[in-house]
Amino acid sequence: MAAASSQTMLPDFSLSPRIDQVGVEERAARFTTRSIKKESKLNGLKLILNMIDLTTLEGKDTDGKVKQLCYKAMHLHDAVPGLPTVAAVCVYPSMVKVARKALEGSGIKVASVSTAFPSGQAPRDIKLRDTRFAVSEGADEIDMVISRGRFHAGEYNFVFDEIAAIKEACGDARLKVILETGELGTYDKVRRASDIAMYAGADFIKTSTGKIQPAATMPVTLVMLEAIRDFYYKTGKMIGMKPAGGISKSKLALHYLVMLKEVLGEDWLTNEWFRFGASSLANDVLMQIVKEHTGVYQSANYFSVD
C-alpha cells in the first residue's frame, strides 16, 4: 500500500529541519500583536476553557484533592450559564480511578502521566507497566515523557522505539508525548524530538512536564506546530499539540490560539487537537469572561480555587 509504505519510510532524524532562533522568536512575537476584541475575544476565551487539561501532579495529591478538582472541571463557574467544561483532568496513575469515577458521565476525559513522570529515568518494562496500569484504571489519555538523556546522547532509535512501545501499550488511549523542551536546550532539538515523537506514533506532542523551567513558551510551541504542519503535509495525518506549564493568563492563552489558527488553521481549533496543560489558567479566563458579560472585573474571591 502506497500510503503505508510512505509512512513507514522514516526520515533521518539527524536531518530534521534547522530552526533559526532569531526568526522563530520574531515570528512568535508577531502573533501577540493581533488585537482580539468583543465577540471574537469571548468566543476565544470559551474555546480556551474547553481546551484546558486541568492538572494536579503533586506528591501530596489525595483522593479528596482529585475529587474536588474533578468537581471544578465539571462546574467551572456556575454563576455564568452556558460555559463549557474543560477537556480533561490530568493526574498521576494512582489517581486515575478516583478521577474516572468522579467524572462519570461528564464527557471530560481522564488523562494520566506515566513512564516514570517527570524524569522518565526508569527501565522500559517499568514504564510499560506504569502505562498499562493507568490505562486499565480508566485513563483515556496518556502523557508520557521521552528519555531526554538518551536523546541528548544521540540515541534516537532508543527514543523512537520507546515511544512506539508505549503507544502500543496505550491501546485505545491517546498518547501525548512530552518532550520536556526546557531540558532540550535548542529549537533544533525541539524540532528533532517532535519529528521522532510523531513518526513513532504520538497522537499529541506536548512541551513540558511543568516541573522544569522554562516550560511552554510561544517560540517553542511554534516550532512544534510547524513540525506538526510538515508532518501533516507529508502524511496527511493530524497530530495534536499541548503546551503545558507557564500559561496562566488569558491574554497569553489568546496569543497561543492566534498562533494555532494562523499556523495550522481551523481544523485544529478544537480540544481534539489542542490542549492547554494548566492549573491556574481557568480562573483567569473565567474572570475575563465574567468581565465581558458585566463590564467589570470581580475579585479573585469570587472564583473557586479547587
Partner: peptide, 23 residues
C-alpha cells in the same frame, strides 16, 4: 481516528471558524 487524508490532497484551512472582530 479519521484524521488521515491522502497527503497530496491535504490542505490547511484558514477562512472559517474563529475570526477576529474589527479592531
Amino acid at each position: 481516528k479519521s484524521s488521515t487524508k491522502k497527503s497530496n490532497t491535504v490542505k490547511l484551512k484558514f477562512d472559517t471558524g474563529w475570526s477576529y472582530d474589527p479592531a
